[in-house]
Simulated scan of single mutants.
Amino acid sequence: MKKIKILSTKKLSKDLKYLFDDLKFDLHHDDFISIQLLKLNLPKHNGSWIFTSKNAVEAVFSSNQNIDNFFNKIYCVGKNTKELLIKKGQKITKMTQNSSNLADFILKKAKNEKFIFCRSNIKNEEFSDFFNKKNIELKEVVAYNNIARPIKYNQIFDAILFYSPSGIKSYLINNSLNNSYCVCIGKTTSKYAHKYSNKVLSCNVPTIENVIHKTIKLFEND
């Protein structure tokens, strides 16, 4: 039986790799993005903070500043980001599954607060523009760099797993999507993938495990 070819654009842990049946799937996985945490000098701020990734959390908490009592309110995106913040001893005011839902919540419940958004060097224009359009005060701090690692593959995959728009950009430097399914971690990534493909699937809850489960389910009848 011909195996189903899968590419993950992020290296998977041993436990995650084991979710794929070796007899059915031919799995390839590589990091198409490398992360560079930046040295930060965080501004004093008695308002609210936004984290949309674990990388931003790691960058902030690896700074040399004493931040034990630094944060007032914290808003975040994603279960993994929330769990890391809790592990760092922080309380979460609100977690949502994506930045669009967080923007909606802030507009309804917190539009008079002042925010600092810790993000990557690749700006989420839609999220940032929301604050400007709604006249909500926002200061953005670049906490880490997303650096492309464009790896060339001389084969066609049945499905490619994407975890960020920057991962898609990096993949496309040396490769084409051809007729592959694009299985995306969430709304922002799937929206970007739709620019290049009409075979896009997205997870309702953005976790790596859910990307894998959605991929396996896609081929359950093959």
Rank of each mutant, 00 (worst) to 15 (best):
P150V: 00
D158Q: 14
A143V: 00
K94A: 05
H213C: 06
N175H: 03
F70L: 05
K3L: 07
I74P: 12
L172M: 05
S8K: 02
I156K: 08
P206K: 11
S99R: 07
W49G: 12
I67A: 01
G47L: 10
S13R: 09
M1G: 14
H194F: 12
K82L: 13
F130L: 09
L218F: 08
A159S: 15
L107G: 05
K111Q: 09
V142G: 07
K94H: 10
N178D: 15
N179Q: 15
L84A: 09
V183R: 08
K87D: 12
N154S: 07
G186F: 01
N145Q: 15
V141L: 00
Q155R: 15
Q97G: 10
S34P: 05
F157C: 00
K187D: 09
V60Q: 06
I212N: 00
C182S: 09
N179E: 15
T9Q: 08
E209S: 06
Y144P: 02
A59R: 04
A59Q: 03
L16I: 08
K109P: 05
Q65I: 06
E126F: 12
F105E: 08
N55I: 00
K195L: 08
T215K: 01
P43L: 00
K169S: 12
F117E: 03
K152H: 08
S63I: 03
I212C: 02
V77Y: 13
L23M: 11
I33C: 03
N69D: 11
Q90R: 15
E140P: 06
C118F: 15
K114S: 10
Y144S: 00
E58N: 11
K109S: 14
N210G: 02
I185Q: 00
I106E: 03
F70E: 07
K17G: 04
D129A: 13
D30A: 13
V77H: 13
E113F: 04
